[in-house]
Computed example of a mutant assay.
Amino acid sequence: MREVKVLGPGCKRCVATAEMVQKEADKLGIPIEIEKVTDYAAIAGYGIAATPGVVIDGKVVHAGGLPKPEDLARWLTS
């Protein structure tokens, strides 16, 4: 199971990013566990300045704006 964290204050883009990650994982048949990280200190700990951020299995793969579905697919399968 892939561990995915969506970093952000809970804004609409953060919610949309979490939904996009879940949709792409379902489409690919990849089981994931999503955690939404809203604590600013925890977000800063990942070294990102813009949200939403996406962390997969401990690695920051995206920061700022909505990710593209094809990028999500690549990150989830690599």
Rank of each mutant, 00 (worst) to 15 (best):
M1N: 02
E3W: 07
K5E: 15
V6N: 04
V6C: 05
G8H: 02
G8L: 01
G8W: 01
G8Q: 08
P9E: 10
G10H: 05
G10A: 10
C11M: 10
K12A: 14
R13P: 00
R13G: 03
C14S: 06
C14H: 04
V15D: 03
V15F: 05
A16V: 01
A16C: 00
T17K: 09
A18L: 09
A18K: 13
A18P: 04
E19L: 12
V21S: 07
V21R: 06
Q22M: 10
K23H: 05
E24T: 15
E24D: 00
D26P: 00
K27W: 07
I30G: 04
I30N: 07
I32P: 06
I32W: 06
I34G: 09
E35P: 02
V37G: 08
T38C: 02
D39A: 13
Y40F: 14
Y40K: 15
A41W: 03
A42Y: 07
A42N: 12
I43K: 08
A44C: 13
G45P: 08
G45I: 14
Y46G: 12
I48Y: 06
I48T: 12
I48S: 05
I48L: 14
A49G: 00
A49V: 15
A49I: 15
A50I: 08
A50C: 03
A50H: 02
T51W: 01
T51L: 07
T51R: 01
P52S: 05
G53C: 09
G53R: 03
V54A: 07
V54I: 15
V54E: 01
V55G: 06
I56H: 03
I56G: 08
I56L: 08
D57N: 15
D57G: 09
D57W: 04
K59D: 05
K59I: 13
V60M: 05
V60E: 05
V60R: 03
V61M: 13
V61I: 14
H62P: 01
H62S: 09
G65I: 11
L66C: 04
L66H: 01
P67H: 05
P67T: 12
K68N: 01
P69D: 10
P69L: 00
E70F: 02
L72S: 08
A73V: 00
A73H: 00
A73W: 00
R74W: 00
R74E: 14
R74K: 15
R74P: 00
R74D: 11
W75S: 05
W75E: 04
T77Q: 15
S78M: 04
